[in-house]
Amino acid sequence: MRDSRIETVKVKSLESGVRWILKRTFFVDFIKGLMVTLGYNLSKGVTLRYPDEEKWIPYRRFRGVHTLNRDLDGRELCVACELCVKACPTRCITVVPMEDSTGKGISDRVAGVWKVDLVRCLFCGYCEDACPTTAVRLGRGYERACFDLSSAVLDKEKLLLPEEVPPDLDGGVIVAASFERTGAGMKVNADFTKLKGDWLKMQG
């Protein structure tokens, strides 16, 4: 029958017994608990209002969507060596080399086709490790939701475009954003000049 008691009372001394009774009579623990929740109720939430108002910008080490890079003169760094294709565990990169002596790339050999299937990519970063010329890099883009899987395959033209996040912005921050839904799809427009706070600090 002991189990049916609300709490097993172990009265050690008269004083602790009295304190036990007083605590129960005046609902002390109960009020303490209520105060804790009241504090939380009045505090500001930590919810990130993505995508309507805020957006998180990842750190530089983040492994997001690939980018293909150029050197300072604007020549494509990729020499179509296909090492990234070999290194890729999911075989999602396709590279078809092409001869080109117009100076488009840093050598005569450039990638005629360079595409990556992001549906299969697991963002392991082996491709960027394998690349001898630092042509392929995993960037900071992470919004890849789409209605149509064919748009998950990115080709060279798209990958060569500059990244959306400005390169001088250190990550780990929250910026202002707005959400746009049109017939063509959805888009989160981030305003990288309006910082809204530090991610780590927000986590308390």
């Binding site: 929740t37 939380y40 109720n41 009045l42 505090s43 939430g45 930590v46 919810t47 209002r49």
Partner: peptide, 13 residues
């Protein structure tokens, strides 16, 4: 809303 704020969320939004 009360549930949300007590759990440091926003509730329906």
């Amino acid at each position: 809303k009360v549930a949300g704020h007590i759990q440091v969320r926003l509730g329906p939004f």
